[in-house]
Design a protein around this nucleic acid. Structure first.
Lengths: 130, 130
DNA sequence: ATTTATATCAGTAATGATTTCTAATATTAT
DNA sequence: ATAATATTAGAAATCATTACTGATATAAAT
């Protein structure tokens, strides 16, 4: 199916690009609504799904049962704060060697892995100390 | 709240212990129903949640949006087959060193990681070849 | 510019997994 | 036995997400 240009899709992608905290569909919705008061949550979901299908954004699942979205599509790892539940990026080299490590003792074929780290984010660490 | 014994809970835990494929609540439900025809899905969910809260089983999220459950609580890694969607265990040493690796370039504190591997399981690998 | 074709939209309804509610039942202690 | 209460079955509610529908916007063809 051929894509047609859409202002709503532009706004969704544009908003995501301004954010480093991997917002949920609901957060995207509430912000894009400032520019498009009549936009529907269904449109937000449809475009987030479309954009991730064509590889322009990432859909991230970090165990809270809610999908998060990320405009940075280059492979990278994520961090989830167990205090504020925030999601952020980690500046970390690829851990692809763990695929071979796992493959060594496995009878099938390992193509990749999904990893996220958890703990206390910089902000919550500061708050704990003060 | 003090726990009381329950035949339904026993059956749920007992069924889970016979399985290595990390069934979903729905699968647990359909099997336990053979012994307790009137058991409700809510009871299955409540007990699976209770058992994982007290650490007798694990609740596993592998990105398909459905919770899987595992009677093996010792830390171990999981594998998801991208062909049959089956979930299985991996016999793999802990990768805890990646926590320190990630911590090195991170301003907060990393307490742990969640990882699962994906690819083709032994069965599907065999079928592809034949 | 008009017309045509169709992708996208807003709004709403439907879905699927999971949780919560309620009155009845089962379990444990007294 | 009796009392106290955790647990149950069944149904309803919730939450995130997807699908449906007729109207609208976009891009291409005339």
């Amino acid at each position: 199916m051929i894509l047609k240009h859409s202002k709503q899709r532009d706004a969704i992608k544009g908003f995501l690009m301004t954010r480093k905290d991997h917002p949920t569909a609901d957060v995207v919705y509430s912000h894009v609504r400032k520019e498009f008061p009549n936009i529907s949550l269904g449109t937000v979901y449809r475009n987030l799904t479309l954009l991730s299908d064509i590889g322009e954004i990432l859909r991230i699942r970090v165990g809270d049962g809610i999908d998060h979205f990320d405009a940075t599509v280059e492979p990278h790892y994520h961090f989830v704060c167990t205090k504020c539940n925030g999601v952020s990026d980690l500046n970390l080299d690829s851990l692809n060697q763990i695929n071979e490590f796992a493959d060594a003792s496995f009878d099938g074929h390992i193509a990749g892995h999904v990893t996220y780290f958890y703990g206390t984010c910089p902000d919550c660490t500061k708050k704990t100390l003060s």
